[in-house]
Amino acid sequence: MLEWTLAILILLGAFFTLVGSIGLFKLPDFYMRLHGPTKASTLGVGAILVASAIHFSLKTDGVSLHEILVTLFLFITAPVSAHLMAKAAIHIKVKQVDRTRQLEK
């Protein structure tokens, strides 16, 4: 039963990591590519880390919680680096796809 949970978590994590990279690979412009890795990859790695925490908690006596640390760190840093990359891209005027809408205030 628990092995099933672990397997599902690992597969889900790998799937989302892959989706993030597919987004990075196939979307047409930089600003759209930004969406894949910041969201999907972060969640994917998070799921894999939770699976690892459960696995090592069961295998050794006592709980293994330090995986939570990496998950938390990723969830805090991913939006920050996305924000900075977007800011840098706007600053050097990276090309946008033609149908991007500019909505004024």
Binding site: T17, L24, S41, V45, A88, I92, V94
Partner: peptide, 15 residues
């Protein structure tokens, strides 16, 4: 573009 490469590196380390 350069930001594309930075983003690719970022994704690479997460992977």
């Amino acid at each position: 573009s350069v930001p594309d490469r930075i983003l690719a590196l970022d994704t690479l380390y997460i992977n």
